[in-house]
């Protein structure tokens, strides 16, 4: 069963007087439970595609259906609701809230979902334990290493048990050892909790871990290997 369906997806940016076709007619289906990587050179449209799938940006043409919802039919508030409840994001630059501790960063999502304080605390601590951050609950992002921050970001992405996690170059700022640890962690989440992961990446290690690899070039799908079905 598909969790993501992209049909004829186009995205054109205006850069000065020039139109840049970041995506030029992408058709893509992602099945539930996939562990998929989008690869390709810089400017191939990986991040743009991830942004469109996550409802962070609007397509110039075509449509994205995520977990049964046609994103182009949703309002800003509905998109926010969808991102909150069904999508987890992991960004290249970690993007944690600097004034909150690791635990509070993870709890923040649950707070937005109006979960009771006790449940929030328990779930946040449990997921931080799962990503190997026992005892670091009270540290603020500035007091954590890059790898630890990215683990917090992963914990935040999966704590609410979303249908899909979108990770934009999650290992780009990490050394290979830390990056591998993080991939192992996400793979474990994928296998244990059946969370769908889509990565955009340049990293060969990520591509190796991915069960399915989609290659983008010039805004189009140029190739693919290892379908999960």
């Amino acid at each position: 069963m598909n969790i993501v369906e992209c049909r004829g997806l186009k995205k054109t940016y205006r850069q000065g007087r020039v139109d840049v076709h970041a995506l030029d007619g992408v058709d893509l289906d992602v099945v539930r439970g996939d562990f998929m990587a989008l690869a390709g050179p810089s400017g191939s449209g990986k991040t743009t595609l991830l942004n469109l799938i996550g409802g962070l940006d609007h397509a110039s043409a075509g449509e994205v259906v995520l977990d049964g919802e046609k994103l182009n039919l949703l309002s800003q508030a509905q998109l926010a609701e969808l991102r909150l409840n069904r999508i987890g994001f992991v960004f290249q630059a970690y993007n944690l809230i600097p004034v909150l501790t690791a635990q509070e960063n993870v709890e923040f999502i649950l707070q937005l979902q109006n979960l009771p304080a006790r449940e929030r605390r328990e779930r946040a601590m449990a997921i931080l334990d799962d990503v190997g951050l026992e005892g670091l609950y009270g540290r603020r992002p500035a007091e954590l290493s890059g790898g630890q921050q990215q683990r917090v970001a992963v914990a935040r992405a999966i704590v609410s048990e979303p249908a899909i996690v979108l990770a934009d170059e999650p290992t780009a700022n990490l050394d290979s050892h830390t990056g591998q640890g993080l991939l192992e962690l996400m793979l474990e989440m994928n296998e244990k909790k059946e969370v769908t992961f889509i990565f955009s990446t340049h990293d060969k290690m990520v591509m190796d871990y991915a069960k399915r690899l989609v290659i983008l070039r010039d805004g189009r799908i140029a190739g693919e290997r290892g379908k999960t079905e």
């Binding site: 996550g54 962070l56 800003q76 508030a77 926010a80 609701e81 969808l82 991102r83 909150l84 409840n85 999508i87 994001f89 960004f91 993007n95 809230i97 600097p98 923040f108 999502i109 937005l112 935040r156």
Partner: peptide
């Protein structure tokens, strides 16, 4: 950037 993050995480306007 932080407000962008908050919106990406699901905060409504």
């Amino acid at each position: 950037r932080e407000f962008g993050l908050l919106k990406a995480l699901g905060m409504k306007p």
